[in-house]
């Protein structure tokens, strides 16, 4: 096997996604391939730099907290009676959290509430088509 096979696995290695045998195979290769070992060191260095940057707390622009509070002051008190739109939105959010997501082929996922919504829309469409078909039949009978 050439280096491209092992190079393609370095990201999976640092992500901890390789199995025991694959790790052993890769480590065996790294022990005698300075190019792949250097590539692994560079990937690790970038990840370490990113993680260190994530620890830094950045200062928001001056007056940020005041602007947030001014916007929050325009909102109703959190526990108070909410407008109908907000009730619907919060209920959908809670449904989202409670029901989770459905996996689709190709690794995509879709919220369960969307699937329920599509189901309701499809049922409404089917009911409407059926209603029209029956009306049409009644009209034909009456002729």
């Amino acid at each position: 096997m050439d280096c491209s096979y092992f190079c393609s696995r370095l990201n999976q290695f640092v992500d901890g996604e390789l199995g025991y045998l694959e790790v052993a195979e890769l480590q065996g290769h790294l022990s005698f391939c300075p190019d792949c070992a250097a590539e692994l060191a560079r990937i690790s260095e970038v990840r370490a730099a990113m993680a260190a940057w994530g620890e830094a707390e950045l200062a928001p622009p001056p007056g940020f907290a005041e602007r947030v509070l001014a916007r929050a002051a325009l909102d109703p008190v959190p526990g108070s009676r909410r407008p109908f739109g907000r009730v619907v939105s919060d209920t959908l959010d809670q449904l989202d959290e409670a029901l989770g997501r459905v996996p689709l082929p190709g690794g995509r996922t879709v919220p369960v509430k969307n699937v329920i919504g599509y189901g309701i829309a499809a049922a409404a469409l089917a009911a409407e088509l059926q209603r029209r078909r029956l009306r049409r039949l009644r009209e034909l009978k009456s002729l």
Partner: peptide, 17 residues
């Protein structure tokens, strides 16, 4: 680059924020 709260984090050899 926004101001950081404390000292600049050490990101590694030759890598600055």
């Amino acid at each position: 680059v926004p101001e950081t709260a404390g000292d600049d984090p050490a990101l590694g050899d030759g890598i600055s924020s």
